[in-house]
Computed example of a mutant assay.
Amino acid sequence: MLVWERPEPANRPAPAPLSRELIVRTAVELADEAGLEAVSLRKIAAALDVGPMRLYGYIDTKDELLDLMVDAVHAEVHPSGDGWRAVLTSLAEATRQAVHRHEWFADLIGGRPQLGPNALARGEAVMAALDGVDVDMIMPVVTAVDAYVIGAVRREIAERRAERATGMDQRQWQATFGPYLVRMFATGRFPALETVVRDAAHLDADETFRIGLGFLLDGIGAGIGAGAG
């Protein structure tokens, strides 16, 4: 029986009441503070001041815990709006915001089964917004948006982690590597790249995400037809 359907043990009185929800909330807090490497049943038990073996009545494996943590974050994603484009935009933006609140989520999103009640509710809201679209096109559309969001947020989180690891912000990076690029451009081998680096607007992450999402949704609109929403 999957963890979503398995009953919890009977609750025990204070001083150490326990529930699956409390365990997952504690795991999320540990991951928010120090990453997934900080999450283990032993550390969760210590944070809750209970014996580690008590947790096994609620969660059997680390994989179950990760699935529950992912579904807890899905509870923060509430797609809304009128029409498929508004709902898919809301889905993408809300998912990105959730990743920025929970950096570890970038490591798990797309890689865990989306079978929990919150993930199913998210999926239901999106599917309902696509009512009227050819049923055979719905999953490719949702998959395309998910793939864009996952790729974008993983890149953003990787850049954030690299900045922390190196201690260099964008300006410091440019000061360090800019002279190298100037020398490479001077060879004349990269004229198109040089034009973009020198002349194109340097958009921030929010603008880059919004524009890229707009391109994708324009393509989806053309593919499913204007009459679909």
Rank of each mutant, 00 (worst) to 15 (best):
R160W: 00
E103Q: 12
T89E: 05
E159W: 10
D134N: 09
I150P: 01
R101N: 10
G151R: 01
L120W: 08
S90A: 04
R96K: 07
A106Q: 03
I157G: 04
V99S: 05
A106K: 03
A147V: 08
G123P: 00
G167T: 03
E124R: 14
D146I: 07
A98C: 05
A86S: 09
A86T: 09
G81S: 04
T143H: 11
R155M: 12
A106W: 00
E156P: 02
P117M: 04
Q97N: 14
D146V: 10
G167S: 02
W104L: 05
G111M: 11
T95W: 00
V153A: 04
E103T: 14
R101H: 06
V141Y: 00
A125G: 10
R122S: 12
Q97A: 15
V145W: 01
Q97G: 15
H102P: 03
V87G: 06
F105M: 03
E124I: 15
L91T: 08
R112D: 07
G110D: 04
P117V: 07
V133A: 01
L91E: 08
E156R: 09
R96I: 05
R160E: 10
Q114A: 14
G132V: 03
G83E: 00
G123L: 05
I150N: 01
G111P: 11
E103H: 12
W84V: 14
E124Q: 13
P140K: 02
A152N: 11
V126W: 03
G167Y: 00
G81T: 04
L120K: 12
R160V: 07
R164M: 11
G110W: 04
A144C: 07
A128F: 09
E159S: 15
V149I: 04
L130I: 06
A119N: 05
T143Y: 14
P140L: 03
D136G: 15
E103A: 15
